[in-house]
């Protein structure tokens, strides 16, 4: 097992190097560079920039260096200083921008993930075990409705209903008077009263898909002969289903978990915009729109790295769950 993890870790190194090269190429693809857009902006505002300043800035940012020197500077800054460059849209270091939004991003993503799983797994298992029962049909209809209704639509409906009929402010994660307040019990309660809405909205879409996947996986396993063997032992039907088919049905589920991590950062952009959530999704969207190269580049790199890490985690989980992978 440890050998397996070590092998996977070693293989991550070349993958990450290739990813960083591709990310760098992508952020260098648009014509011009950071400085030329910066100067263009200043000139558009009527400020003249003298050649000495320009040269000093070019030297400082190393923009005249060969492309591979720039790449190593960029990467070196990231690795050794945690410096992802500068966002000219926000006039702030990229790392500061992203780090500010990471806690809320992970909070919303983790809560909606836990919500989706805790709702979808039991329902999926139930639907499989009681296939074609009334309960199965009801959950199937609800599931497809959840899949079919776009999230932003659900978000808008929530906003409207809660404001119109309950007089609640549900945009953002905090009430206006708590946004800059220090942490307290009241602020925490305020957070909870706002958090459930994005969690439910983002969760429902995931739930519907997960119910279908779980149902199909468990159905496949329920027909396997080992289930009959376990029945022949006199095992309680409930324990039987949890110990055998559900356990094995989790494998395809776990192997798709690698894509959850990057999805947390980039996902649910539209819902976040509609609900005015301080998460990374809208930031990424804005960076792409305004060609904020270093900010966008940092996202591209981060998403790629998170994908690699996510796949590693799901592989480790899978090896831990399934001895056929671990031992062969």
């Amino acid at each position: 097992m440890w050998g397996f993890i070590l092998r996977r870790l070693v293989w991550m190194v070349p993958t990450l190097i290739v990813i960083s090269i591709i990310s760098f190429i992508i952020i260098q693809l648009p014509p011009g560079d950071y400085l030329s857009s910066y100067i263009a902006r200043l000139e558009a505002l009527g400020t003249t920039v003298d050649q000495a300043t320009i040269d000093a800035l070019r030297l400082r940012y190393g923009l005249d260096d060969p492309i591979w020197v720039q790449y190593f500077k960029w990467l070196g800054n990231i690795i050794f200083n945690g410096n992802f460059g500068y966002s000219f849209e926000w006039r702030l270091p990229v790392s500061q921008l992203i780090v500010e939004r990471l806690p809320t991003t992970f909070l919303v993503a983790t809560c909606s993930l836990l919500f989706a799983w805790s709702v979808a797994l039991p329902i999926g298992i139930f639907s499989a075990v009681k296939q074609y029962s009334w309960g199965d049909y009801v959950f199937t209809v609800l599931g497809f409705l959840g899949l079919g209704i776009p999230n932003f639509m659900l978000a808008l409906t929530f906003l409207y209903v809660s404001n119109r009929y309950f007089g609640l402010s549900i945009g953002g994660l905090f009430s206006p008077n708590y946004i800059n307040a220090p942490w307290s019990l009241d602020k925490f309660i305020d957070l909870l009263s706002h958090l459930w809405i994005p969690v439910v909205i983002v969760g429902t879409a995931g739930t519907a898909g997960l119910i279908r996947i779980t149902r199909a996986n468990v159905l496949d396993e329920l027909r396997k002969p080992y289930v009959e063997t376990a029945r022949a032992k006199g095992l309680h039907p409930m324990l039987l289903i949890l110990k055998y088919p559900v356990r094995i049905a989790l494998n395809p589920f776990v192997s798709s978990m690698g894509f959850i991590l990057p999805g947390m950062i980039s996902g649910e952009v539209i819902v976040s915009i509609v609900l005015n959530l301080p998460t990374t999704g809208p930031l990424l969207y804005a960076a792409l729109l305004s060609q904020d190269t270093y900010l966008a580049g940092a996202f591209v790199l981060m998403l790629a790295v998170l994908t690699v890490i996510g796949v590693l985690i799901s592989d480790i989980l899978l090896a831990w769950l399934d001895p056929r992978i671990r031992l062969s």
Partner: peptide, 28 residues
Amino acid sequence: DGAPMRAIRGRRLAMIFQEPMTAFSPVH
């Protein structure tokens, strides 16, 4: 699925299946 049947199944009546590969759970 009742308790009396389950107490007999496996203890007083047991069964061997045709495919020893698929009749065992692969992950236990």
